[in-house]
Design a protein around this nucleic acid. Structure first.
Lengths: 189, 189, 189, 189
DNA sequence: GATGAATGAGGCTTCATTCAT
DNA sequence: CATGAATGAAGCCTCATTCAT
């Protein structure tokens, strides 16, 4: 009963992500959002009570995806696991950037937003501990250059994600290539 | 003698940079800017006609600094030059991020902004050609792993700049460390 | 320096009171308010950060007036004091109605509003204890009909304030007349 | 058999009255109304074409009740009749307050609302003339203090209705008490 | 030149009302 | 009939910019 929905919650979040990435958190406007959806701006409020909730929900969903994929990784071989993890992060590359906006959200405005962000925070901790676990093993097993501080190694690894893929190499190969550069360097062997 | 000058053009640009980096381009507001200056908000208009001009001028100044330092580098040894270049980019690390905002500026609003951005664009080309020149030589001279496409090597090099320096290692050492990881990788040798 | 003010804070509160009384709390709109002031609607925000603060400030001012006048009353003769108190309440008749809106104000929105309302609350207690003090004495001194419960007597006294003055009798006489009716009744003596 | 009826017209008007009294005319919102009814908000439009009509119908119904009760009063003894009239007005105390909103309704929007308000207006005149008739007789028959202007006496009588019944005395006794205070005053006899 | 105040355009959000199922 | 969803008008508030002192 009632009319057919103009757009689904999922479509809404898809566009939210798009607008967020294109305009940044402060540039995220409902006008921009509704322009890329079929209905009126006010229809958005059928799903979320305010801007903050939309952004928080978007982040939560993104985080859920990453978390699921990351936790599905087989950690038997730590170096393989790292390679797979890089795959995951590259597939959901934007999520890294989205996360950066998390602390800008005004939680006072909305309990729902606060709740979603709580989840994001927790998941963040989970991901971080997975990463640290793997790197600790990598170091123990002697895969890493001991003359380089571990935090620096981790930092560069994480930062690989943002490297612009100018040649549009398909993600799996691109991931392998980045991994190779990270581990082996770009210099002549 | 007239009224004391409220703040200098240079102070204005310093704070512009700070606010831009903290809040992003869309979050850049004159109220935030004037809060970190001694005078009134309206005084800003003594120097620049509108928001766009301020941001453009800020970018131009940042670019001038980098350009000057980059062009002072001795290019005799290309690998040394690259290491020095990384020094320069890290010293002015923010400039990389600032540049990302360049295309968001609405040039229609102001000729002065358009003019400044023209300069930035030009300088960008200059820097890029310096980089490409050096990388071409590095490859020719056999310093680089030929199995990796050059654009990927360059991309990773550029992206190093954004690596978070979690341990707050002083910039010169941090630069050396990043260079070492880039060239030699993080794996056991 | 700077431009001349379009309207003073006091004028703003005057009109606030007028609009509140005419349209009620839920009907209080900034558009209506600014229509009765010389400047633009947004100018209001030079004085108060939001609607709630305006209303709260209006109430506080009204309460201050009443409080000052009420506390200046000589309480030597309690029945005289009650007559004077009625004068005061009639002069500021609207304040009784304004107070009714106090609990509707959303304090969560503004600390300043909450603070003003705190004052109003306190003053309310002060006024109430003055009233109870006087009535207690009136009863002790045998001025009141003991067959009527005191709260009923007080209730009717307070309610006199709202009696519409259809003949537009000047306030002092009107006050005396109401007092006379209250104390002596309207029946033949 | 079709769908079960969501709520009756009468339930609708009951809640209308409740919401009106709680939130005032300007605060009367269909969302608040439907929250206290079993069906959907849009179902309201099965009964009335718009907000104004609902409020007008509510007032009309309230007025009809009062009118019926008031016209049933035996006017043989004018002072008894006044006491009975006070009973009636107290039983339907809210109606006095509701009436105050009548002039705020925008009649331009709806013929039906205008029609209902016309009725209310007429009934108001009827009630008023009853009151004036009784008071004229009361004065003629020497029941009232001739030193007090009749309009003032009527005003206070009418205003009694709003006196807050803090002790929650049952309406019939409360009515007698108010009548007694009005006629005989609260002072020592 | 420097300022504080004024302002209108534009964004967020709510709400009466309409529509399609 | 009953409903849930859709919608635009309208209210609040912010912010870049202009103005008068």
């Amino acid at each position: 009963m009632g009319r057919k929905q103009a757009f689904t919650r999922s479509e809404l979040l898809d566009q939210t992500k798009r607008v967020l990435l294109e305009y940044g958190y402060e540039g995220f406007q409902l006008k921009l959002l509704s322009k890329s959806l079929v209905g009126a701006r006010s229809t958005i409020y059928q799903y979320y009570a305010n801007k903050e909730e939309i952004v928080a929900a978007c982040m939560k969903r993104s985080m859920e995806n990453v978390l699921q994929k990351a936790s599905a990784i087989d950690e038997t071989e730590c170096m393989d696991a790292l390679q797979h993890l890089l795959d995951v992060y590259l597939e959901e590359a934007d999520f890294h950037q989205l996360l950066g906006y998390a602390h800008k959200i005004n939680k006072a405005n909305s309990a729902a937003a606060a709740h979603d962000l709580e989840f994001v925070e927790q998941a963040h901790v989970t991901l971080k501990s997975q990463l640290e676990r793997l790197f600790a093993r990598a170091q123990e097993e002697g895969h890493l250059n001991t003359s380089i501080p571990l935090p620096a190694i981790i930092g560069v690894f994480f930062n690989l994600i943002e490297t612009p893929n100018m040649m549009n190499i398909p993600t799996p190969q691109w991931s392998k290539l980045l991994y190779q550069m990270w581990l082996g360097g770009v210099g002549r062997r």
